[in-house]
């Protein structure tokens, strides 16, 4: 407890990096996942069942396997590792961890968003258009009606990636001061026998999740008015 309250600088650094990595990954997966979920929920097209099957598989995919795939793609001999381009993240950097977490979170955001959109009466689209909505406005109206489900999608995805160990360990490497996040630090400190620090890190992780979820739920009550 003393470690948390004293604001130990190395602990602060780990917390900040955890939030930066998972926050960025969440932003990316929200921007990609919500449109995918909306399209799958609203439009009927050839190959839709196949995409849905892929999505459900992605939702249940073991994160460590995604970590492995990202690792293989980014490694020196991998397809992306050979390309020298600024936008391709290097292995063992926070950017590689953001990439892995985004890949984990996108199917979750898209899948829950799709489920939420499917739960809205399809006739609402017709009513919205009858009241003068453009196709974009009608789609946005449906998403707004599904907002509780969409918020749950984002919260669930955040919970998954902030608590995730295997993938960030593989692609980040748990390097002190560079790619060490809360979960990998817990693993390391437990192995070293530093249970006090491990527990402090664990409590911080739970506390973070609690604060963020509470904030989101309060926001949700606001928008439900």
């Amino acid at each position: 407890m003393g470690l948390i309250l004293s604001g130990d600088p190395s602990l602060t650094e780990v917390v900040v990096l955890s939030l930066r990595v998972s926050g960025t990954a969440l932003l990316i997966s929200t921007l990609i996942g919500i449109p995918i979920g909306a399209v799958l929920g609203l439009r009927r097209f050839v190959g839709r069942p196949f995409v849905m099957a892929l999505l459900y598989t992605g939702m249940g995919f073991p994160p460590v396997v995604i970590g492995l795939l990202v690792y293989l793609f980014l490694s020196r001999s991998g397809p992306l590792g050979q390309i020298e381009a600024g936008w391709i993240p290097r292995l063992f950097t926070p950017e590689a961890m953001i990439l892995a977490q985004s890949v984990i979170a996108i199917p979750l955001v898209a899948g829950f968003t799709m489920a939420a959109v499917l739960g809205v009466d399809p006739q609402l689209q017709l009513q919205a258009r009858a009241l003068g909505a453009t196709p974009w406005q009608a789609t946005f109206t449906t998403l707004a009606e599904a907002r509780v489900g969409v918020i749950i999608a984002i919260v669930a995805a955040f919970g998954r990636i902030i608590a995730e160990v295997g993938a960030v360990m593989l692609v980040g490497g748990n390097i002190d001061g560079r790619t060490r996040v809360l979960t990998t630090a817990v693993v390391l400190e437990t192995r070293k026998g530093n249970f006090d620090l491990a527990i402090a890190l664990g409590i911080t992780l739970i506390g973070l999740a609690f604060v963020i979820n509470t904030t989101v739920l309060l926001l949700q009550r606001q928008v439900s008015r």
Partner: peptide, 18 residues
């Protein structure tokens, strides 16, 4: 759109927003 917006429908079920 401007022509379409000159008409509107009230359906049997009201389909109100939440």
């Amino acid at each position: 759109l401007a022509e379409r917006r000159r008409a509107t429908t009230v359906f049997q079920r009201p389909f109100l927003l939440n």
